[in-house]
Write a protein that binds this DNA or RNA. Sequence first.
DNA 1: ATATTATACATAGATAAACGATGTATCGTT
DNA 2: AACGATACATCGTTTATCTATGTATAATAT
Lengths: 118, 118
Amino acid sequence: MSRNQKLSKELVRGTTSLIVLSVLRREDLYGYQIIRTLETLSEDVFSLNEGTLYPILHSLEKEGYLTCRWEETDSARKRKYYHITEKGIRELERQKAQWEVYQGAVSKILGGAGHAFA
Amino acid sequence: MSRNQKLSKELVRGTTSLIVLSVLRREDLYGYQIIRTLETLSEDVFSLNEGTLYPILHSLEKEGYLTCRWEETDSARKRKYYHITEKGIRELERQKAQWEVYQGAVSKILGGAGHAFA
DNA sequence: ATATTATACATAGATAAACGATGTATCGTT
DNA sequence: AACGATACATCGTTTATCTATGTATAATAT
């Protein structure tokens, strides 16, 4: 039985980077803001820990999917804004396509005959 | 910011037990058959390792979601059929509902404004 | 005045789901 | 006779995410 579709495990386990890349495509955001934005957009379904997000941002940057810059605020506090690169957009599209495949497969199995909707 | 929805991590990481329970709701199957069935239903998107499935079956059985029985074949080979219990069906419905929530949240974020479909 | 919470960054050790490798044994095909 | 498919099982490794912890500033509550 051939393994033509071979879904990458990163996706199954980690929709996190997909989601992060996705919000950064809309606009540049800083770390803390990404967490709050995701909470709002997902109506509190997603609530990334800082300990989860920051390492992901670092690794996405390292791989060239994101760039970052420091920005001053009115106060002494600094914010690190992240910006998605062209390479990052391509990666986003790739992960998004895989998500569709994965999601579709789950639906296919869950929606399969054998029980009503009630 | 209240955490009213608190999505269980088991789901994010593991749709596996959801999927297994789901196919077993349709009919009793034995382990090896579950793997092949999932490959067929998902058009090769899912391809569980035996080393992944068997421990899951054991743990689902231990938790009372499944029962099992040995069946003889025409040959000397034996098959261990799994059957979903009432408790298992309730667990399935619970996990399925969570999947809908999760899936919806991802879609909401991915489908968000800011880019066309092309 | 001062304690607590929110903002804002960061890292490091623990957890646990899934993987890969390995093992046993039977059966069918080449 | 060799090999791949069937059919079960376990164990050590990997790694994404979590929890805990740390630093520091700003705002709010007691």
